[in-house]
């Protein structure tokens, strides 16, 4: 293996400026987890199918296992650690996932939350079908998604100033 020099990357992570030297091949997920100790995003499949590594980059959802840290140079990255509101209260999605039992083992949850955040920013009041399609890049092995859908509906209602009403079965 040839020796490859490290190169500088500088980006904003959860509102904080970060500068590091990295090997170009450093995957963003490893950069976040190993360099910055932000271990919320997880690695579940490594082939960009499971979405456990999902973070928000400049307002879009990205699978950070299939992106080099250098590609995020200059970007603004938000991970689940930066999801809570500025005043320290939990984001409506964090609340919704707990209220609606939208998680079990918790491993997919950070990626699912970050995906849901962007989904709601693009579509503030999605239907069940739109939610299911919108989170189809995130696999969950525990919940069967039904309560995740409700959790996102709960958050959408709250963010829209409504109280969530569960649909009758």
């Amino acid at each position: 293996m040839s020796e490859i020099d490290t190169i500088p990357v500088s980006l904003t992570v959860n509102g904080r400026k970060v500068q590091r030297f990295v090997e170009p091949r450093t995957l963003l997920i490893h950069f976040l987890r190993e360099e910055l100790n932000l271990t919320g995003a997880h690695i579940g499949c490594e082939t960009s199918h499971c979405g456990a590594c999902t973070v928000e980059i400049d307002g879009a959802s990205v699978k950070s296992c299939t992106m080099f840290a250098v590609q995020a140079n200059g970007a603004s990255v938000t991970t689940v650690e930066g999801l809570a509101n500025a005043d320290g209260t939990l984001h409506a999605l964090q609340e919704g996932f707990r209220q609606m039992h939208g998680l079990q083992c918790g491993f997919c949850t950070p990626g699912m939350l970050m995906r849901a955040k962007v989904l709601l920013s693009e579509n503030p009041d999605p239907t069940e079908e739109e939610i299911r399609f919108g989170i189809a890049g995130n696999l969950c092995r525990c919940t069967g998604y039904q309560n995740i859908v409700k959790a996102i509906q709960y958050a959408a209602a709250k963010l829209n100033g409504r109280t969530y009403q569960e649909a009758a079965e």
Binding site: R33, E81, L83, L90, R98, L103, L113
Partner: peptide, 16 residues
């Protein structure tokens, strides 16, 4: 669930 408080904030602690 008690667990959800940490899991929803990315503060679960898994082996890796």
């Amino acid at each position: 669930r008690v667990e959800d408080v940490r899991f929803t904030q990315g503060k679960g602690q898994y082996v890796d």
